[in-house]
Design a protein around this nucleic acid. Structure first.
Lengths: 214, 214
DNA sequence: AGCTGTGAACCGTTTCACAGCC
DNA sequence: GGCTGTGAAACGGTTCACAGCT
């Protein structure tokens, strides 16, 4: 075992290993080595072993990891026996697309509430979720014990809405608004700034390639 | 000056500084110190100075950075005088939301082509972009000199489509499919695995908080 | 022989701390 | 006095390399 601090990147990769191992299990592959698993996930064998090593020793020297066991262990570690209630704030193009995205619930993430300021949207239903006004956010988030949220409101409203979410007890924000949110220590934010990510990628190939002068 | 290798994280933050400086410029603030800029972006003053330092010395000791100049310098560094053609592949809920998202073009990213396999979608138009079959991808991507792409197809199709994109000359993929894509050295991929990001956030607050047992 | 688990080395990035400039 | 620019130190994470298990 090991009680050192576990890198966030390791946790994130654990979900990737679980995904892969689940596939292997489906096709009845019983055993996988760190190097094979690394190849399937574009990671090094050492990386795979080190990541798994944080949580104990479930490999077998000489043969690798038992797929079924590894799958179960990862599910346990990652809390796959739980479901999470998620609040969605901002039901524009992106927000409504995410509301109808089935990928979340497949991973134990249930969007159980959605909010918007636009009166024309309030009362509408997407995938069994009724859009409510932001004024109701506090009560609903507390009542449904929601600690995860997705923020897809326009940039200028993002900080205000984040404040309301945090005040209501939300602990995590997946932030699609292109702004730097100010949040207290105990709240985790992950920025999903699509334009910025794409521009950053572009920067590194810009030499060889072909943006056009305006 | 400085010709050391520049971290990707630095480039990504440069876009954040530019965003902030653009706001400051709008409200006629003429000067900003590294610590003020750091506060606005939730970064340390040292981080701000080091990032900017990679590209020369545009600060003024004792008073800080001239907002207008810094804005221009950042625009130049980041190639904001260019526009980029982007191909969108997979026009489901998410893909069509992204097609109608105005944030991209505001940043010089023009979605100039969109593709899908679903015959019912082909020929439809979103924001002046006509959906074409994947079979036409190669020709169109080459013809329009497209080096950036957004991949929002189902997981099982993602690798095949990525191969086609790369074969056609695309250099960057913003990947919304929850799979580890195999790509050659010269192609850059940024994974946008929404469920994984949210689950990873959840993991770190799971102790204190309240996922429900299934 | 094959493969894991893990200290140690390495590398990239961030933070510190201070000399130098305005 | 205030703030930049930047080497040096610290940190965090990845890769190496090998002892030990099966």
């Amino acid at each position: 075992m090991n009680n050192k601090k576990i890198p966030e990147a390791t946790i994130s990769r654990l979900f990737v290993y679980l995904r892969e191992v689940t596939e292997l299990d489906k096709v009845n592959i019983r055993t996988i080595s760190s190097s094979d698993l690394g190849e399937r996930t574009n990671l090094s064998d050492a990386q795979v072993r080190k990541d798994l090593g944080y949580f104990g020793q479930f490999g077998v020297s000489g043969s690798g990891y038992a797929v079924g066991e590894l799958k179960q262990s990862l599910e346990k570690i990652l809390g796959k026996d739980k479901t999470w209630n998620v609040a969605m704030v901002g039901v524009g193009h992106l927000g409504s697309a995410l509301l109808t995205y089935s990928g979340f619930s497949r991973h134990g993430l249930e969007i159980v509430a959605a909010f918007d300021t636009d009166i024309r949207k309030i009362g509408k239903t997407f995938e069994n979720v009724v859009i409510k006004p932001i004024d109701d956010l506090s009560k609903i988030v507390a009542g449904k014990n929601i600690s995860l949220s997705i923020l897809s409101v326009p940039a200028r409203e993002a900080q205000d809405v984040a404040d309301i979410l945090i005040e209501a007890g939300v602990k995590c924000i997946l932030n699609f608004a292109p702004v730097s949110l100010n949040v207290p220590e105990h709240v985790k934010v992950k920025d999903m700034d699509l334009s910025r990510e794409l521009e950053t990628l572009a920067y590194f190939v810009a030499g060889k390639t072909n943006g056009k002068n305006k």
